[in-house]
């Protein structure tokens, strides 16, 4: 009985680790409140953390379609944008309570994915990728002409503004995304998606409904990106509505997922942490802008050419190499 429990714990070690990590992150701002010498920097740290959570959420949600179901969506930013613009407009202009606006934002993104998904998912591979890129660009241009100018938080909200609640919301969205990915990758649905990724014809021949599986992954991925957009709308006090539709959001997600390891749970998280920390470090040390983009561009190309499994795969490769070495020594 006990050994049974132990074995399942060993096999599913990720789950308790994730729960503990999430709990720790939620308590983190609380931990620092008593430390006056740290207080000066805490807003910077919280901002950095929120940025990290946003990119990690975008990457993890993007990974659901790209990593598990194998379809590269180059229009992910559109769902992030829809989530943010719907949330922002309902919350600030139409006076909805924030929570309601937030879920409408995610729902709108999911609905958009459902509408677009039916025709777009008939395209495969590269055609899906460039098709989604074009759609996102078309939407970005439309939003740009519909909502010109900057969206600012009005007076009352601005006076009540504090970062901790923003931190918590974006963390909640990230945690939700990671847990959804976790359970999805273990479910029959996730298995079907992986089968499609490996060999679509074979998946079809064993009775997997390819269209429904990819559509589900697409809608789910969009919904989570929409929630991330809602959290962003809550967090930022003034930005251009077109900003959240920018292709750079998609590109960041793609970049960190491939660097971390596509199709894995940890890949997007490791990749985005690496990305955000290095970016922050370089911004602090270098006079020149966007040095990180050159660096990550190079790393990214190298990963595509020589390490298609990303950093996650690197660790398994190293441990496998290490095992071989030790086995040789013992022989």
């Amino acid at each position: 009985m006990l050994s049974e429990l132990l074995r399942s714990l060993i096999q599913n070690w990720r789950l308790p680790v994730l729960v503990a990590l999430a709990y720790f992150l939620f308590e983190l701002p609380e931990l620092f409140t008593g430390w006056p010498w740290y207080y000066e920097e805490i807003n910077d740290k919280l901002t950095l953390a929120i940025t990290l959570f946003t990119i990690a959420t975008l990457a993890s949600s993007w990974n659901i379609l790209a990593g598990y179901a194998g379809q590269i969506n180059l229009g992910h930013a559109a769902f992030f944008g829809i989530g943010s613009v719907v949330t922002r407009e309902l919350w600030l202009t139409k006076d909805y309570p924030f929570n309601e606006a937030f879920f409408y934002g995610g729902g709108a993104a999911a609905l958009a994915a459902l509408i677009v998904g039916a025709p777009a998912l008939r395209l495969k591979g590269i055609y899906f990728a460039i098709g989604t890129l074009a759609l996102a660009e078309a939407l970005r241009l439309t939003i740009g002409s519909m909502y010109p100018g900057v969206s600012r938080l009005p007076g009352p909200e601005l006076r009540a503004y504090e970062l901790t609640s923003r931190y918590e919301l974006s963390l909640k969205v990230l945690v939700a995304t990671v847990f959804v990915s976790y359970f999805l990758s273990r479910s029959k649905l996730g298995l079907g998606m992986k089968a499609i990724r490996e060999d679509e014809a074979a998946a079809r021949s064993i009775g997997i409904n390819v269209f429904l599986h990819t559509l589900f992954a697409f809608v789910l991925s969009a919904f989570l990106a929409g929630l991330a957009g809602g959290a962003f709308a809550y967090y930022h006090y003034s930005y251009n509505q077109i900003y959240t539709f920018g292709p750079n959001w998609t590109f960041d997600a793609l970049l960190v997922t491939f660097i971390g390891g596509p199709g894995t749970l940890a890949g997007p998280l490791i990749g985005s942490t690496f990305f955000v920390l290095v970016r922050d470090y370089l911004a602090g040390t270098s006079e020149l802008v966007d040095t990180h983009l050159i660096l990550f561009g190079v790393i990214f190309i190298l990963v595509v050419l020589i390490l298609p499994g990303g950093l996650v795969d690197l660790s398994t490769r190293i441990s496998r190499w290490f095992l071989r070495r030790t086995r040789k020594v013992f022989r």
Binding site: I72, G125, I126, A129, F251, L254, L255, F258, V289, D290, T291, L293, I294, F296, G297, V298, F300, I301, V304, L305
Partner: peptide, 19 residues
């Protein structure tokens, strides 16, 4: 091949634009 070329081109885009 097409997928990898897309990704490499994407990396090049980032580098080229920043430079």
């Amino acid at each position: 091949r097409i997928k990898n070329s897309l990704l490499i081109g994407f990396g090049l885009t980032l580098i080229g634009q920043t430079l």
